[in-house]
């Protein structure tokens, strides 16, 4: 029984069958990659996991509890954090403030009316934020406006914000899309480091095979909305069906 169990999920947009009978099981403490050509339904699947979309049929269980019908913030409070394709951070706030927000969400839940205390005096929160920034080597950028960070740093910050919440499952939506080779390798190293330091399950959607084969313990290939194969990286590499899905019949 995996930490994330997707069973018989279907999602239709008008005449388009975006997801057809998807079954997926992500084992705890592994890196599970979902790959597939454009339009295979990877992002739709991810959106079904985080509460942005509700599947037409099927079930999505996280840690034995259904996530269906829950809002994104409820699902996050259950222990699923998400990193977006283009980094989603609080651009108007400083790096420090960006880090403090998930710390409050972790400690105080989805809403707490604390309008009279001062952020600066919440010792545990401040320490937690600084500690996490140190871990991702961004402590020197503490008081910078987060919108003025480089793209790589924004990604790093978003990742740190997610990790600060100590999620049990981290979902990554094409974390290296549009990145130069060097940045991609940095991201791979960062993810490896993250994985090494803690017990965390990572589910990654990716285009870049280099990233997938460097990180994944398990790979699911999606094609036209349905899982084609699920196997270890070594077996996926040589699988003719996968080559066909990616390169077409002629290959």
């Amino acid at each position: 029984m995996g930490i994330l169990e997707v069973k018989g999920v279907n999602k239709r947009f008008g005449g388009l069958q975006a997801l057809g009978d998807v079954n997926l099981s992500v084992e705890e403490n592994t890196v599970h990659a979902i790959i597939g050509p454009n339009g295979a339904g990877k992002s739709t699947l991810l959106n079904c996991l985080v509460g942005k979309l509700i599947p037409d049929t099927g079930s999505v269980m996280f840690d034995g509890r259904s996530v269906l019908g829950r809002t994104p913030y409820e699902i996050n409070q259950m222990g699923i954090s998400r990193v977006f394709q283009t980094p989603e951070i609080f651009g108007d706030l400083t790096v420090f403030e960006n880090m403090v927000i998930p710390a409050f969400a972790k400690r105080d839940g989805a809403f707490r009316m604390h309008a009279f205390e001062s952020v600066a005096r919440e010792q545990d929160i401040v320490e937690r934020a600084q500690q996490m920034l140190e871990e991702v080597n961004m402590l020197d950028k503490l008081h910078m406006h987060s919108a003025s960070l480089s793209r790589g740093d924004k990604r790093r910050l978003e990742m740190a914000m997610c990790l600060l919440q100590e999620p049990r499952l981290l979902l990554l939506d094409e974390p290296t899309a549009g990145m130069a080779r060097a940045d991609t390798n940095n991201t791979i190293d960062l993810l490896k480091e993250i994985k090494q330091k803690r017990d965390i399950t990572i589910c990654i959607i990716e285009h870049d095979m280099h990233v997938v084969f460097s990180l994944a313990d398990r790979i699911t290939v999606l094609a036209q909305g349905s899982p084609l194969v699920e196997d270890s990286p070594e077996n996926i590499r040589g699988n003719p069906k996968v080559r066909e899905a990616y390169l077409g019949e002629a290959a």
Binding site: T71, F84, E88, F90, D92, A105, H114, E117, S118
Partner: peptide, 28 residues
Amino acid sequence: IRLFRSPFGLMLRAVKSNQQRLNYTGLN
């Protein structure tokens, strides 16, 4: 002033900055 400097005030500025991220950070 107290409200501006409070966690509550910070959350309000976060609402203005990026509601999507706020939602996916477990805050309503």
